[in-house]
Amino acid sequence: MTMASRALIVMMTCVLAGLPAHAAGRFALEQAADGIHVHRGQQAESSPENGGDIANIGFIVGKRCTAVIDTGGTAAIGRDLLMAIRQTSRLPICYVINTHVHPDHAFGDSAFKDSGAEFVAHASFPAALAARRGAYQSRLAQTVGDVADGSDIVVPSRVVAADDTLQLDLGGRTIRVQAWPTAHTDHDITVFDEQTATLWTGDLLFVDRIPVIDGKVLGWVKVIERLRALKPAHLIPGHGPINRPFETAFDSEKNYLNDVITKMRSAVEMGRTLQAAVDSDSDSDERAHWILFDDYHRRNLTAAYTELEWE
């Protein structure tokens, strides 16, 4: 697809602030709450067909400026997002907030390099990026093809330490950026919009798609409790439909993770080997609840087992 035709589609499918969400077209936006716009990624693995468009990304518009939250799996997706923002608001982009370094959320950063925005992330984000960028980059080209060109993740100019929060004033609305202890990764961030009580979770919440443990499962279930206590009125997960009731969404994820913890903890206590432990739960009852279960469940068991050995 040429740049021109891509731009055209973006323009055609863009919604203006205040209008109801619609899902048609290639780069669709949904409105989670007043001034909060979400592009929903597909519930699939990255592929040449979906161009790496698999994560939820979007932006929050204030009276003074706009904050971007996650930028998508490629520079091309980042550019689509940028154009969608331009269709919605003429205000400057003051912040690009990376919820974490996973490539499906962050490779669109490069589209915002020259936007003048300040890049905000967790204090452990730079180290994770330094260690992973090279491997992520070569993997991206293999996964999505040429559309990966120009994709890069930007080193944050402002970081938030674990368990700290940062208030950002967008003009007439304040968003609270919170950095968490190790959970989905060792550098997860959430964004809470106080005006609408909207919680943007990054990958601390997966809806319908199987959660992936790349941090600590024990830390994650604790963070889920704290997120649930925020009682958000609107909820934007890292993957999956927006605005599920928060109780259902968090409880489904917590149930899955607790099931993994219980089974792997008992396997460790029984002295089962890693292989035997993973084999013992390949047919979990949880399979029915999650998209991509067979792609990630055994891997999650592996991660949980090796963590629980050192509990």
Partner: peptide, 12 residues
């Protein structure tokens, strides 16, 4: 620079 299977979330 080889693809890393442990690089989430595109591993599978």
């Amino acid at each position: 620079c080889l693809a890393a299977a442990t690089m989430l979330p595109m591993a599978a």
